[in-house]
Design a binder for these strands. Structure first.
Lengths: 184, 184
DNA sequence: CATTGCTATGCAACTCGTTGCATAGCAGGA
DNA sequence: TCCTGCTATGCAACGAGTTGCATAGCAATG
C-alpha cells in the first residue's frame, strides 16, 4: 500500500487538513492517485499515531475547526526508505479493453458511442494538462528540483493522453469498419 | 466490478476450468486485467449460481478432475447489457509517479536504478507483444471480427509500452541532470 | 424563509482483493 | 528415494476500498 506515501508527498509539498488533502486527491494528485476522504482520515490517524506526521489544531471562525497535518521526521525517513524499495508490478484493470473484446460476441456498433465518450474525456483532460502546464510552468528554464520532477510527471500524463487519444481513434475506425462489414 | 465480465469474455473466447482461467489471467488477459485464483473461483461459483455460466465435470486420469465452465444464455445477455452501460472513470494508481515527486524531498539519484528496472521491464513486455503479434496475427489482411478486436487491443498495449518507454527515458535523463546539478 | 451547497470530520457496514495454508495425485530430476 | 513442481480446488483471515449516513455551522441562492 502506498496511500501513506502519496499523502506524505502531498503534505511535504504543502501541509493541510484531511479535507484539503481529499480535495487535492480529486485534482492534481488525483491524476495519478485516487482516494476518498474516508481512506484519507483513517490513514491520517494511523500516521499520526505512528509519529509520521504532526497535527496542529487550527481554530477557525465562520467554519469548523480543522487539524492541519505536516510531515514529521519519522515520516520523511519512512518515505526515504520506501523510495529505495522496488515497486511491485502494478495491477492493471483496463475495463474498456475488456469491453472491446466483448464486442466480438455482441454488436461492435453498440460500443461506438461509449468509445466516443471516452475519447472526448481524454481530449478534455489533455487540454486541462496543457493549460495547467502553461499556468504552473511558464518558464521551463527556471525550475527548481521539485518543479522539475513535477513537470516530468506532467509530461508523462500529457504523453499518456496523446497516445490514448490516438488509440481510441484507431478503435473507433476499427469499430466503424466492422459495423459497415456487417451491413452489406 | 467487472471481473465477472472479464471471465465471461474469456469463457466465450474459449471454455475452461477455474485453474485454466487463472493461468490465462496471468498471461494474455492479464495484460489488461489481473485476478488471483481465489477471486476467480469465488466469482465462478456465484456466476454458476446465477445461471450466467454452465459447468461440466470432466474426469481426467493422471490428474485431478476439473469443472469446465462455458458461458450460458443469461451470461451473454448480462454481457450485452454491460456493454451498453457507461464505464465508470477508472481509478488510477501510478506508484512510480508518486515516487518521482517524492524524490524531490530526498535524493533524486536514489531513484535511478528503480526507474531503469521499470524501463527494462517495459522494454521486455513490448518485445513480447511484438513477438505475440507476429505469432498470432501473421496475416493482418484476413482477420475475423474477434481477431480484429483482439488486435486493436494489442495495438493499444504496444503503443502504451512504446510511450511508457520513451517517458521513462525522459525521466532518467531528468534524474541524471538533477543528480549532476547537486554535485558541482 | 427555505433549500442547497460548502467546510470538516467521523461511524458502521459492506464488498473486493490478497495471503497463507491445505489437500492430493502424478511427473521429472538430483 | 527425496524433493520440487504442476494440476486443480478450496477454506479462513485479514486488509484495503467503497457507500451510506450523521453532525454542524455558515454562505449564498431562490
Amino acid at each position: 500500500m502506498a496511500l501513506e506515501h502519496a499523502i506524505l508527498v502531498s503534505l511535504l509539498e504543502q501541509p493541510g487538513s484531511g479535507y484539503e488533502l481529499a480535495r487535492r486527491f480529486d485534482r492534481s494528485i488525483g491524476r495519478f492517485w485516487t482516494a476518498t476522504h474516508q481512506q484519507i482520515y483513517r490513514v491520517l490517524r494511523r500516521m499520526e499515531a505512528d509519529g509520521w506526521i504532526a497535527a496542529e489544531e487550527v481554530v477557525q471562525d465562520g467554519r469548523p475547526d480543522k487539524k492541519v497535518y505536516s510531515a514529521a521526521g519519522p515520516g520523511r525517513a519512512a518515505l526515504a526508505g520506501w523510495l529505495r524499495e522496488p515497486v511491485e508490478p502494478e495491477t492493471v484493470r483496463h475495463e474498456l479493453a475488456v469491453k472491446i473484446r466483448a464486442a466480438a460476441f455482441d454488436d461492435p456498433a453498440a460500443l461506438i458511442s461509449e468509445v466516443e465518450r471516452h475519447r472526448d474525456g481524454h481530449a478534455a483532460l489533455l487540454a486541462r494538462y496543457l493549460h495547467g502546464e502553461q499556468r504552473d510552468f511558464p518558464d521551463l528554464t527556471a525550475l527548481d528540483t521539485a518543479q522539475e520532477l513535477q513537470h516530468v510527471v506532467l509530461r508523462g500524463g500529457i504523453e499518456f493522453e496523446r497516445m490514448t487519444l490516438a488509440w481510441l481513434d484507431d478503435v473507433l475506425a476499427t469499430l466503424h469498419r466492422l459495423a459497415a462489414d456487417r451491413r452489406p
